[in-house]
């Protein structure tokens, strides 16, 4: 007869169902985080001194700022107060800010190349972007490429050398959506905070790019590999007035090469204030 005097072996670990579930979830989260690093959520307010500045901009009767050829005055700025519809002035000014940010970054990159310096400035992910004003779409649809003389709009640059072209589309003077021609991903893109599929956007953009290509490159545009694209998880508005803010934010994210958006309806009050600050200071925030 043997007597076991050594200590009892430890009990084998048999995890409970709950423990298994928790560990599986944490593994899923780790994988998810690796695949899609989470951006920090947007705050609900600007730093106090910036909030004060926003109030000062709003109450300044003589408010007037310029960026490129775009101007925003007091009357336009009021449209960024809660619940107001945005107009072309606000949206085109925001487009000008997006373009100005890229122009500044382009200069930075040239300077860096000369200094042979590698940088991790926040600007390093910015795309070579062109913004078409809100009137581009109107002219394209109302008059077409020739009658609307749209060739003049692109005579100063090669649109086919851009990473992405973004624009705001006005629908029946009651709704704004964002559209893009994404040369890197070969996509015609439409982003609508009301969730409609905008077939007309794809149709007109395809005609435009083909006509432009025939004029500049003397041959039809090669649509091989190009798709019409809309993001199924496009953030949606839950009211009848925020679409202009969504549209501006879609375009801003696209100009940084984002594949998804880090804002929802709940961020709109903050984003309206942020846009007032950005317009008043004629620069986009990088926080």
């Amino acid at each position: 007869m043997y007597v076991i005097c050594s200590p009892r072996p430890p009990k084998p670990f048999i995890p409970s169902f709950d423990q298994l579930r928790i560990s599986a979830r944490s593994k899923d989260n780790a994988i998810e985080h690796l695949l899609r690093p989470k951006r920090s959520p947007l705050p609900t307010s600007l730093p106090p001194e910036d909030e004060a500045q926003v109030e000062a901009f709003l109450s300044d009767q003589a408010f007037r700022v310029k960026c490129g050829r775009e101007t925003v005055v007091h009357k336009d700025l009021q449209r960024l107060r809660p619940c107001q519809w945005l107009n072309d002035e606000i949206i085109n000014f925001y487009g000008a800010l997006i373009m100005a940010r890229w122009e500044a970054e382009k200069k930075n990159r040239v300077a860096e190349k000369e200094n042979r310096k590698k940088s991790s400035r926040p600007g390093h992910q910015l795309l070579d972007v062109h913004y078409f004003s809100t009137f581009f779409w109107t002219k394209l649809v109302d008059q077409g490429y020739e009658m609307g003389r749209l060739a003049k709009w692109t005579k100063m640059f090669d649109i086919f050398a851009k990473d992405v072209v973004v624009m705001a589309v006005n629908h029946s003077n009651s709704h704004w959506t964002a559209a893009a021609i994404n040369f890197r991903k070969k996509r015609f893109e439409s982003y609508d905070s009301m969730g409609f599929s905008r077939e007309a956007v794809f149709r007109y953009l395809r005609v435009f790019i083909d006509t432009e290509h025939r004029l500049r490159k003397k041959q039809p545009f090669d649509f091989t590999g190009w798709e019409d694209y809309t993001l199924s998880s496009t953030p949606q508005q839950e009211n009848g007035y925020d679409c202009g803010v969504f549209t501006c934010q879609f375009m801003e994210s696209l100009s940084r090469g984002e594949e998804s958006f880090n804002f929802t309806q709940s961020n709109m009050p903050y984003l309206r204030k942020r846009m007032i600050w950005e317009i008043g200071n004629t620069k986009l925030r990088d926080d």
């Binding site: 945005l86 107009n87 009137f135 109107t138 002219k139 006005n170 704004w176 009301m194 409609f196 679409c243």
Partner: peptide, 14 residues
């Protein structure tokens, strides 16, 4: 030469 004239555009929802 030609100048294009456009009217103010607004939007809030469809």
């Amino acid at each position: 030469d030609t100048i294009d004239v456009m009217v103010e555009q607004v939007g809030g929802s469809a």
